[in-house]
Simulated scan of single mutants.
Amino acid sequence: MKDYSLVPIGEVLSPFKKREEVPKQGDKSLPPVKIKIYSRYLQGLSRLSRGQKVYIFTWLHLASREVLEVHPGGDRQLALHGVFASRSPARPNPIGLHLVDIKEVLQDGLVVHPLEAIDKTPIIDIKPYLPEVDEKGFSIFFDFKKVKEVIKIGQLGWEKGLFSGYNGNISVLDTSKVLITNSKTFKGNLTFKDFSVFDLRENRLLNQGNPSSESKMHLFLYKKQPKARAILHTHPPYLNLLLLKGYDLLELPFFEMDLFKNKIAYLPPLKPGSLDLARVVARAGEKYSIICLQKHGLVVWAENLQEALAVSEEIESLAKLFWEYKR
């Protein structure tokens, strides 16, 4: 078998000096990082500009080259995947792929963000990000149109005040695949890298996402309720106020409440992201499509995303009326 050689074009100047310090994914909270490009390759940076997205290819020089199966993300609750079905650094040719924003173009390299790599990691290539090509590539894992729909629902939900900061999560079921927002994602401006995809039948992660801590709740609910095709977990402020005060929304003297009286369940406080929460919500979801979580917001399942959003918005609107009514 013929051997081929790679020539590093530069190196990462990272604050991470030890392997255990490096996060598994490029988190938005990471500081910008400089990549130094060796002098003979600097001309190759021509036409790159600040604000542009690029792929950085690294040689993960400390990774094992003997491993062929891994638990994605190091989570042993997930089934073993072949390394070619994961983004584990351990693989026969340990090439790292990082989608980053260029923060500065320097005389001797670039400042980029976010880049999760140990100091002195070799850079082997840089390529531009092409959204019209690369975003559609996500359809390998999930239907492209449905991903765009979730992005739109996230934006609308944020505009209506149902999401704030990084709270809440959105998911949609397509056949046996579940698309769910990643942990620490801003729902008002989701991108194609902000999602995880699960195989519901095989209980495994299909892409190398960073799943929300509430993924179990969504997956359990889909399994218990065959009519559910979309789930929104939001944190509506007025509903949360009512729940903290111990009020029952069904006491609001409006005709609209007759539509919801057999659809709303109230659950006691349970630890966010816990197995107990996932199981209790899934059991409630067998009978109720609107689930109020004490200290943890609202879960609504529906047959499509638009319906889930519309119901969530209406519940929050009624909660606001109830709050004013009680004052």
Rank of each mutant, 00 (worst) to 15 (best):
K28E: 15
L232S: 00
P269K: 01
P31I: 10
I264P: 06
A117W: 04
K127D: 07
S274G: 11
K127Y: 07
K216N: 08
K148G: 02
L205H: 07
V300K: 14
N93Q: 08
S176T: 11
L318W: 06
S274K: 13
V311S: 00
S29W: 12
F163S: 01
G10E: 06
L249Q: 06
D194Q: 05
D119W: 02
R201L: 15
K145E: 14
K187C: 01
K224L: 10
Q52N: 02
W59V: 02
P31M: 12
R327H: 08
N189H: 14
G165C: 07
L200E: 02
D134T: 11
F141I: 03
L68R: 15
L243C: 00
E20T: 11
E314V: 13
K146Q: 15
A90K: 10
D174P: 04
L110Y: 06
R229Q: 08
L293R: 09
V83E: 07
K2N: 12
K227P: 01
G188A: 01
H235T: 00
L298N: 10
D134W: 04
L115Y: 08
Y247K: 15
K223V: 00
Q25S: 09
D3N: 06
F220Y: 14
E256N: 03
D125V: 06
S215G: 02
V299N: 02
L190S: 09
E316Y: 11
S176G: 06
Q77P: 03
T175F: 05
E324P: 00
I124D: 09
P211Q: 02
N93G: 09
Q43M: 07
K320L: 13
V22A: 08
I290N: 03
G168F: 13
P236Y: 03
L48W: 07
L45M: 10
P114F: 00
L259R: 02
K24W: 05
L200N: 15
S196I: 00
S274N: 05
H218T: 01
H61C: 01
K177R: 15
G109A: 09
K2S: 12
L156W: 11
L298R: 13
F163C: 03
W323H: 15
L130A: 11
I231Y: 07
W323I: 03
L305I: 01
P92D: 04
F260Y: 12
L179D: 01
H61E: 14
N169D: 05
G44C: 07
L221W: 06
F198C: 03
V299I: 10
S196N: 00
E202M: 09
Y288S: 08
F84D: 10
G51W: 02
F163Q: 03
E286W: 04
G10N: 03
N189V: 08
N210I: 07
I291Y: 09
A278Q: 04
S29M: 10
A90M: 11
A282D: 03
D199R: 06
E135I: 06
I231F: 04
S49C: 09
F192R: 02
N304F: 04
P15D: 05
K184S: 11
E149C: 04
G297C: 03
Q52V: 08
F144C: 05
V22L: 06
L244A: 15
G246R: 02
R279N: 15
G273R: 05
F144R: 13
